[in-house]
Amino acid sequence: MQDQLIDFINNELLAERGISIGPDDELLLSGHLDSMAIFQLVAFIEGDLGLAVPAQDITVENFRTATVISQYLARL
């Protein structure tokens, strides 16, 4: 799942800007993901990975890195 997340972030969200991230790279402090990108990422998790993410769980704590996101999703 972590690999799918990283692929999606790199290929769909960051490719245009010529950036790619690894599992533990900071996604938010670096400003890599804007609000549109976060929306797309949540849509990917819900649509392609089939996991429902409650609005109150979409937080800076749960979305800091690809590893942190997949750990959060594993708890769902």
Partner: peptide, 11 residues
Amino acid sequence: VPEEYTRFPAS
């Protein structure tokens, strides 16, 4: 309000 908080309403 740090920048990342402005993109996460729950936070």
